[in-house]
Design a protein around this nucleic acid. Sequence first.
DNA 1: TTCTGACCGATTTGTTTAAATGGTCAGTTA
DNA 2: TAACTGACCATTTAAACAAATCGGTCAGAA
Lengths: 206, 206
Amino acid sequence: MGTYSEQKEDKAGLIISAAQKLFGLYGAEKTSMREIAEGLHISKASLYYYFPDKENLYKAVIEKEQAEFLGTLEKNIIDNSDPAECLRRYALNRLSYFKYLVNLGRVSPESISDFKPLIADSFRNFREKEKKLVMQILEKGENIGQFKTRDTYETASLFLDILRGLRSVFFNNKKLVSINDEEYKELSRRVEAATDIFIKGLMYKK
Amino acid sequence: MGTYSEQKEDKAGLIISAAQKLFGLYGAEKTSMREIAEGLHISKASLYYYFPDKENLYKAVIEKEQAEFLGTLEKNIIDNSDPAECLRRYALNRLSYFKYLVNLGRVSPESISDFKPLIADSFRNFREKEKKLVMQILEKGENIGQFKTRDTYETASLFLDILRGLRSVFFNNKKLVSINDEEYKELSRRVEAATDIFIKGLMYKK
DNA sequence: TTCTGACCGATTTGTTTAAATGGTCAGTTA
DNA sequence: TAACTGACCATTTAAACAAATCGGTCAGAA
């Protein structure tokens, strides 16, 4: 990489960070490009030199967060050799990421449901990557004769949807803006219980 | 019951049915008390002879639907002796009820999240009844040595939340107004798969 | 290459006004 | 006296319009 593109990435990174902060404070829709530019002491038009439009800037913020999470997740999992323990860790790590997103204001009705196609793609992509990670764990479990599944892809998808569903149910019951420690403990207790039963349900019966 | 209260219940029942129909067409918020009264050829004030306010009328509609569902559900389950099969039936019956509610327009962001306390109570009550039904099934499974759970109440609650979560995830992905046959099949396939794994996870290991 | 001010059409916001809504009540009806 | 009603009220919602703000563009300066 040359100096230019490095500089460009630096500047783009600064913009992403500034946008990330403001999106976290006010939400993406309530944050204007003018505000982001003013915070960086540059003109609004400059933002459009680095990002074609607001949607792509938002996408960059989302994908930055997703990449960070997937990175730490892989590290946290790969070193562990027991597939069941891997699934347990996955569930709790994923929940921790959820808490982070909620407390950042990144999870809300409008952020989830009526997403623009571009952002929806990012989420789909993220979920696919998650699925593949879980698939790897399941396949490992099959190979060492610990698990027995019909279809690792379907099972991984189901596992993630169950976790997502539990979060969603918990989230819908209380109208959450942020998660405090008590709520988080309660939710992780349920997620752990569900994961344990799920794992038992995958176990190979001798 | 005397003639008077029977007549009163008849009339109240008519009002509930009329309201049910209109709520289904336009939603509770977009249906006015005037409309309901006009459809029954009575004055708006008369509605307030039978129901203290709109909220309680809506509550009556909700509880009528819930009672009907719980009734058919119990019938559909009680005659079956295998607990695992009971859980499977429960899951699919519950899904069928969900489809019914969605296609009636009874499930929507505003109907779910920002409910008035009164209606929220009805839902809590309904969920408690569901939980007790599932608990009965689980206890039966424990008694015949088929299941092994830490806590039947917690497990029942978890089972229902997982089902609810899967519906919620499916519902949030597509922005549903009604469920067609394909979507319903897809959803029941997933619910069945989750239920099967869940049941396996409850099985007593010899 | 990087950045900007001036500018555009479209959307959002604020404000005002009229209509409709949920709810009440004294009194009629049968 | 239980069942019902028309007239009425305070509050919410709908409509309409103006002003501000928004995302985005572009010729040209640095």
